[in-house]
Design a protein around this nucleic acid. Structure first.
Length: 332
DNA sequence: ATACATCCGCTGCTTACATCA
DNA sequence: TCTGATGTAAGCAGCGGATGT
C-alpha cells in the first residue's frame, strides 16, 4: 500500500475508494476500479497539477511522495527505460539497495522501479516461451520430415520383398523340388544384401519401424504403457539431438529450480514455486536473445514429451496423415 | 525446538492508458 | 477523426521465505 493513502473496497464489486492522507494538506478522494486506476478523480479541485515525473532532487523531498496523487499513467522516458534495461541485463532481480539507488537516479519512486522489473521479467518470460516454441517446432518439423522419408523407404522395401517373393514362387513352380526353392531363397537374400550395401538407411528404417511398432503397441494397450511415446522412440536415430541442447529453454521441470545459462540474467533465485521460477548462473552477459527458460538436461525430454502428445494423438492415422501434422491448438 | 503471526517480494492475472497503423 | 491492436504501468490475490515472538 502506498504511503499515506488508504484504499478500501467501497462497493464490494471491485471498485475501490481511496483517501489520500498526505502531508500536502487536506485529504482527497476518488473512485478506483479494481485495477486501482482512478475513475472519478476528485483531486482536480485542488488546483495544483504536478507532473507525474519530476527531478531526483524533488523526489528526495519526502513530502513529495506523500503528495503523489493517482494521476493518469505516464510512460517512462526513453532515458529511464534505457537505464532500467541496462540494469536488468546486469541483474534481473532487484535488491532493496539497488532499487533505491535506481529510483534516485531515475527520478522515480522505488515502487515504480520494482514494478518495472516485475513487468520486465514477465515480458522476458513470454518472449522466451515464444522462442522456445519456435525452436521446438522447427526441430519437430525436421524430425517429421525424416520420418516421412523413412516411411517411404519402408514402403519401397516392402514392395521389393513382395516382388522377390513372387519371383521365388514362380521359380519354385517352374523348376520344382527343394533344391530349386533353396536356390531361389539364396537369390532373394543376395538381392536384399545388395540392397543393404546400396542404402545403409535400410537397417535404420527397419529399426525405426520396429520401434514404431513397439510404441504403437504400447499406445494401443493402455494399461502398463505410457500414454505418450517414450523419448527413446522419438530419439531414434538421434533426431532429437537436433534440438539444440546448447541453447537455454523455458520448460519448467519437476518443480526444481533450474539454471538458465548465458541469458545475462545474473544470479538470485526466484523464491516462487509457481511457473518454475527464473534462476540464472553467473556467466550471463548481454541480452536474453537466444536463451531459453528450461534447463538443458530436461530439454530433449521435454520436447519429446511435448511432441509425443502429438504422436499419440496421431497414432491411429500415422501413415495416412503423413505430412499433415497438426498442433495442439488444432486438436480441440 | 516448534508454532504462529507478520512482513515483504514474487508470480500470475488483470485493467486502463498510451501509442500507432 | 475514429478504431482496433499492441505495449506498458500498475493494481490485486495468493504464495512462500524470512524474521520476530
Amino acid at each position: 500500500m502506498e504511503s499515506g493513502r488508504l484504499i478500501f473496497n467501497a462497493t464490494g464489486s471491485g471498485q475501490m475508494l481511496f483517501l489520500d492522507c498526505g502531508a500536502g494538506g487536506g485529504a482527497t478522494g476518488g473512485l478506483f476500479h479494481r485495477g486501482g486506476r482512478p475513475m472519478l478523480g476528485l483531486e482536480e479541485g485542488r488546483g495544483v497539477k504536478r507532473p507525474f515525473f519530476t527531478s531526483p532532487d524533488e523526489l528526495l523531498e519526502e513530502e513529495y511522495y506523500d503528495e503523489q496523487l493517482p494521476e493518469k499513467k505516464r510512460r517512462l522516458t526513453p532515458e529511464q527505460v534505457h537505464l532500467l534495461e541496462r540494469s536488468f541485463e546486469e541483474e534481473n532481480k532487484l535488491e532493496p539497495e539497488r532499487k533505491t539507488e535506481l529510483a534516485r537516479k531515475l527520478g522515480l519512486q522505488p515502487r515504480q522501479v520494482a514494478v518495472w522489473f516485475q513487468n520486465r521479467r514477465a515480458r522476458w518470460k513470454t518472449k522466451q516461451l515464444e522462442r522456445d516454441f519456435d525452436r521446438l517446432k522447427a526441430s519437430f518439423d525436421a524430425l517429421r520430415a525424416d520420418h516421412d522419408v523413412l516411411l517411404q523407404d519402408n514402403h519401397r522395401l516392402r514392395s521389393q520383398v513382395a516382388s522377390l517373393t513372387e519371383k521365388l514362387q514362380e521359380k519354385d513352380v517352374t523348376e520344382g523340388g527343394a533344391s530349386g526353392a533353396a536356390d531361389a531363397a539364396v537369390d532373394v537374400k543376395a538381392s536384399l544384401a545388395a540392397e543393404d550395401m546400396e542404402e545403409p538407411a535400410v537397417a535404420e528404417s527397419a529399426a525405426f519401424e520396429a520401434q514404431q511398432v513397439k510404441s504403437e503397441d504400447r499406445l494401443s494397450t493402455g494399461s502398463g504403457g505410457s500414454a505418450v511415446v517414450d523419448a527413446d522412440a522419438l530419439l531414434c536415430g538421434g533426431q532429437f539431438a537436433a534440438v539444440d541442447s546448447s541453447v537455454e529453454s523455458y520448460f519448467p521441470g519437476g518443480g526444481e529450480d533450474h539454471h538458465y545459462h548465458g541469458c545475462g540474467m545474473g544470479g538470485g533465485a526466484m523464491n516462487h514455486g509457481v511457473g518454475g521460477g527464473i534462476q540464472s548462473d553467473d556467466d550471463g552477459a548481454g541480452s536474453d536473445e537466444g536463451c531459453s527458460y528450461y534447463p538443458e538436461e530436461d530439454e530433449a525430454a521435454a520436447a519429446a514429451a511435448f511432441f509425443a502428445g502429438q504422436a499419440h494423438h496421431h497414432a491411429d492415422d500415422d501413415e495416412d496423415a503423413a505430412g499433415q501434422m497438426s498442433w495442439p491448438w488444432m486438436w480441440s
